[in-house]
Amino acid sequence: MKRWFRRRVDAAYERLLSREISGAPTHVAVIQDGNRRYARQHGGDAQEGHRAGADTTERVLEWCQDIGVEELTLYAFSTENFNRPEDEREALYDLLCEKLTEFADADRVHDNEVRIRALGAVDRLPERVREAVDYAEEQTAGYEQFVLNIALAYGGRSQLLEAARGVARDVEVDHLEPDAIDVETIEQRLYDQPVRDVDLIIRTGGDERTSNFLPWHANGNEAAVFFCTPYWPEFSKADFLRGIRTYEHRKESWRRTRARRAIALLGAVSEPELTDAQAVVNRFRDSLPVGERPAGIDREATGVADSSESTTTEDGLDSSSRAAD
């Protein structure tokens, strides 16, 4: 009776959360923590926890597609995982091979045109895992509807270090001028294929840290972060929707902050800067409480077009200044 009642409550909560969500992040990144603790809690070994977590991964992929997420990155195997006991590592390798092959052959992957890609130092993994990665990437190479990144042998700091070394080598042999180094220069050296900026990081298992995960694409984009206590095998659709709601609240808070900063600048800047500040106020004034909205700023008088006519990005910034705030 209690289990039946709990299911009814959970279903009602999911419907409530779904109604509260008006949009979806483009790129969600997930730190799947808690598989081993889940297994210990249920009297099993680490391998059973990882297998239960793999089932959750499949469900999350479906939830992302249902609400309109376009890219999902899963932290499947970090560089620190090489330090785990050999028997656990070997079991993880076997599970990765199995799931990569299974995903590559799954009808739902091909029906939804999901492209599978690996991020990280894949060459450090055993040959059988590298072959499974190659197979999954080859089977889905022509798809662009949805991107599923699997972070394997991944460490964000080491990725940035390798990118910096590549830039230094190019400068040393005169293939690159220092003044020409920009955001795109680094991004081209991080991964073989472009990775979208991360809008939301979700971490399960109770720890509140991002563990060196996608630092360039998450920190540079001021991504929202959602920490939750359920272990990864226990992660539910309600937990997922709560994460999406956190992203929406973070986005709205960012818009309000931008508007307030612009208002504060209006009385203390030069004429060209004044026009820019007025433009920001006009773009984001609707995000402020009514009592904070400034009076006397006219869109036509400042030459600011409505957002529907604007050709800039939603935040009014170009890629070279995304992290300026």
Rank of each mutant, 00 (worst) to 15 (best):
A151R: 05
D239K: 01
Y231K: 06
T140M: 07
D123Y: 00
D298W: 11
A164G: 06
S287A: 09
Y247C: 08
F284H: 08
D45V: 12
R169P: 01
E300C: 07
A295L: 13
E88D: 08
G303Q: 14
E88I: 01
P85Y: 00
T302W: 05
F240N: 04
I202M: 03
Y13S: 12
G120M: 07
L74R: 08
G44E: 11
D199I: 13
K2N: 06
A76V: 00
R40D: 10
A46T: 11
E127R: 15
L265P: 09
V281A: 03
F146S: 11
I244G: 06
D87E: 08
I202K: 05
A168H: 11
D94E: 12
E144M: 04
D87W: 00
R256E: 15
A29M: 07
E90K: 07
E70N: 12
V147C: 10
G166M: 03
Y13R: 15
I150R: 07
R242F: 02
D111H: 13
E208M: 14
E234L: 11
E113C: 14
V167H: 04
W4V: 15
L317Y: 09
V304G: 01
S319C: 01
V225L: 06
L148R: 15
E248L: 05
V28C: 09
T101L: 15
A121N: 05
A218S: 08
F103H: 05
R260D: 13
R285Y: 04
K251S: 12
E20F: 09
V122W: 06
A268V: 11
H27P: 02
R258K: 08
Q278S: 08
G303M: 06
A323D: 14
F103A: 08
A268L: 04
C64I: 10
Q32I: 00
R169F: 01
R283V: 01
P178H: 11
E71H: 13
D107L: 09
R293S: 05
E62D: 15
Y247L: 14
G155K: 01
S270M: 09
A295P: 05
V167E: 00
R250M: 14
S319L: 11
E172Y: 06
L148C: 07
A12R: 15
D66N: 13
R189C: 01
E144G: 06
G155T: 02
V183H: 14
E71F: 13
V269M: 12
E144T: 11
R258N: 13
T204V: 04
H27N: 15
S287D: 13
R8C: 14
P85I: 04
E14Q: 12
A11N: 15
A218V: 08
T275R: 13
A262Y: 03
G44D: 09
R59C: 10
E187R: 10
D66H: 02
R250C: 10
D107Y: 03
D182G: 12
G316I: 00
P233I: 02
V290E: 14
L214C: 03
A46N: 04
A218P: 00
T275H: 05
G34Q: 07
L241G: 08
E138Y: 09
V280Q: 02
Y231S: 02
A180E: 12
I150V: 12
I181P: 15
T140I: 10
G303K: 11
L241M: 07
R3K: 15
Q193Y: 02
D315K: 09
T57Y: 03
E62S: 15
D55P: 08
V114R: 12
G34M: 01
F146T: 13
V304I: 01
G34T: 10
E62K: 14
S18L: 10
G156S: 04
F103E: 11
P194M: 09
